[in-house]
C-alpha cells in the first residue's frame, strides 16, 4: 500500500462520512433530524477545508473554512430550526418512493457517480480520486432527495446539501475556488435562504400547507 499523507487520509475519511450523511438524509423522515444532519455535513466540510488549508498553507482556505462554519453549521441550521418551529412542519409526509427503494436507487447513483469519476480521477492526482467520486455522488444523492420529497422544507435541505457536495468537490480537487467566488456563493445561499423563508410563509398563507402538491397545477384548465 503506498503511503498517503495522514491529512489526506483524513480528508478521504471525511469524504466517506459525507457520503454516509447523504444516505442518512435520504432515509430520514423527520425534518428536524434532516437539518441536524445538514449541520453535521457543514461541520465535516469545515474540518475538511481546514485540513486542506493546513496542508497547502493558503490563508484564504482558512477563511473559507471559518465562513463555512459560521454559515453552514451555525446560522443556516438555526434559521431552519426557527422556520420549522414557526411553520410547525416536523415530519415529511410519506416520500414519493419508499425508503428502501430510494436507497436502492441511491446505491445505483453511487455506482454511476464513482464510475463517472474514474476517468476524471485519472487526470487528477491519485489522492483526490476518492473525493471527486464522492462529491459527484453527494450532489446526485441530494438531487434524488429533492425529487422524492414532497415538503418544501426537505427540498431546501436537499438543495443546501447539493451545494455542500459542490463545495467539497471544488475544495478537494482544486484547493478551493477563488475567494471572491466563494464569498459570492455564500452570499447567494444566504439570500436564497432568506427569500425562501419569506416564500414559505407566503405559501402557507395561501394554501395552509407546505406540501408542494398545491403548487403542482401549473397547467391551466386542471
Amino acid at each position: 500500500m503506498n503511503t498517503i499523507p495522514l491529512d489526506l487520509q483524513i480528508v478521504n475519511a471525511l469524504a466517506a462520512l459525507l457520503l454516509l450523511l447523504s444516505f442518512s438524509m435520504l432515509s430520514q423522515r423527520r425534518i428536524v433530524s434532516l437539518v441536524n444532519l445538514l449541520a453535521m455535513q457543514g461541520l465535516l466540510l469545515t474540518v475538511a477545508t481546514l485540513m486542506v488549508a493546513w496542508r497547502t498553507g493558503e490563508t484564504h482556505l482558512y477563511l473559507s473554512g471559518l465562513l463555512t462554519f459560521a454559515l453552514k453549521v451555525l446560522f443556516l441550521p438555526w434559521l431552519l430550526h426557527r422556520l420549522i418551529r414557526r411553520l410547525e412542519v416536523y415530519w415529511d409526509t410519506e416520500p414519493l418512493l419508499n425508503i428502501p427503494g430510494t436507497m436502492l436507487v441511491g446505491v445505483l447513483i453511487v455506482v454511476f457517480a464513482f464510475g463517472l469519476a474514474q476517468p476524471i480521477a485519472e487526470l487528477a492526482s491519485e489522492t483526490t480520486r476518492n473525493s471527486i467520486g464522492i462529491a459527484v455522488a453527494v450532489i446526485l444523492l441530494s438531487f434524488l432527495m429533492m425529487i422524492t420529497r414532497s415538503k418544501a422544507m426537505s427540498q431546501v435541505v436537499g438543495f443546501l446539501s447539493m451545494e455542500n457536495g459542490l463545495f467539497f468537490g471544488a475544495m478537494s480537487t482544486t484547493r478551493g475556488m477563488p475567494m471572491v467566488v466563494e464569498l459570492g456563493i455564500a452570499l447567494d445561499i444566504l439570500v436564497a435562504m432568506l427569500v425562501l423563508g419569506v416564500f414559505f410563509f407566503q405559501i402557507r398563507e395561501q394554501f395552509d400547507s407546505l406540501d408542494l402538491h398545491h403548487l403542482e397545477s401549473l397547467k391551466e384548465g386542471d
Binding site: V107, V111, F114, G115, P119
Partner: peptide
C-alpha cells in the same frame, strides 16, 4: 470496464 467493475461486486 468502467461502471461494470463497480456493478458486478454488487
Amino acid at each position: 470496464k468502467p461502471f461494470v467493475n463497480m456493478l458486478l461486486p454488487l
